[in-house]
């Protein structure tokens, strides 16, 4: 729809779009700004926007007092572990469905998707009970497995749509050239699919990092990731806005950056290839 327009029109568009963009972004901006204020400035009346005494004190306090690093490490472990584990299981499955489709491929894909739509709360107690029985409650391993399972359908789907775009003839050429199945995957498929695999990895890391049902319900002190850590601020004492902001900023910053890189793949990943 890009057409020649006058500069006036463009300036108007720019002004409107930027205002709306900043308005939507404002809560995040405000959180980041507040994280550099003192607690008194954070609730000062009238609010101060930029002209305050910038301080890193909150970050220091949050790290010291709440063992922030442990929550961070839990988040990294759980999100990273579930994504990598998911990829290891999903790559062969997606390969099969993309390149050796059968009559049932479509049904299997849709069925996988349907497991994603199971409301978590419907199976909360069984999982909770199984976790207790298996000694997985409040462990990183347990949470990693659960998050891997809830994101596995998305990983398979994303990889499937990426693999589908690799022409089957190239893989057949490899076969004709004498490559065995494993060599075909290692030398031809994987290098060609690297961009798709990378964006799948990114998006699923984000989804796992932000997951806030199982992480809240299956962890306590030991394995709690950042989602649970932040939730612990919901019943605070005393002045805490600046510290809440500092903790929040640390929890969302890495993901915001990753998210910006993965925005193009986001659409494909979250609509199961239905919108491209």
């Amino acid at each position: 729809m890009a057409r020649a327009v006058t500069n006036n029109r463009k300036a108007l568009n720019t002004a409107i779009a930027w205002s709306i963009g900043l308005l939507i972004f404002f809560p995040i901006l405000w959180t980041i700004l507040t994280s550099f204020k003192t607690e008194a400035q954070a609730i000062s009346n009238p609010p101060v926007f930029l002209f305050f005494d910038w301080t890193l004190e909150n970050y220091a306090v949050v790290q010291e007092r709440s063992n922030y690093m442990r929550f961070l490490w839990n988040s990294v472990f759980i999100a990273g572990g579930s994504t990598v584990l998911g990829l290891i299981i999903a790559v062969p499955a997606a390969w099969s469905m993309a390149f050796v489709p059968s009559k049932r491929t479509k049904d299997i894909l849709l069925w996988m998707l349907s497991t994603k739509m199971l409301p978590a709360v419907g199976v909360l107690y069984p999982i909770y009970l199984l976790f207790i029985k298996l000694g997985l409650l409040d462990t990183r391993i347990g949470l990693t497995i659960v998050l891997m399972l809830i994101n596995l359908p998305i990983i398979v789907w994303m990889l499937y749509t990426y693999f589908k775009e690799i022409p089957g003839e190239i893989l057949e050429a490899a076969r004709m050239d004498g490559a065995s199945l494993s060599k075909e995957i290692i030398y031809v498929l994987t290098p060609m699919a690297i961009p798709g695999i990378a964006s799948t990895l990114l998006l699923n890391f984000i989804l796992a990092w932000n997951e806030a049902f199982w992480t809240l319900n299956l962890t306590a002190a030991k394995a709690a990731p950042l989602t649970a850590f932040i939730a612990s601020y919901s019943s605070p004492e005393g002045l805490f806005y600046a510290k809440l902001s500092a903790a929040s900023t640390m929890a969302i910053a890495p993901i915001l950056i990753m998210g910006w890189f993965s925005q193009k793949q986001l659409v494909r990943g979250l609509t199961f290839g239905a919108v491209k």
């Binding site: 809560p27 809240l216 902001s245 929890a251 969302i252």
Partner: peptide
Amino acid sequence: IVRILVIAPFFVMPTVSALVWKNM
């Protein structure tokens, strides 16, 4: 840049956005 500003909230973890809105 506007695009990035607009999609940013999606990447904020639910507990953070709930708490930030609730308190601040």
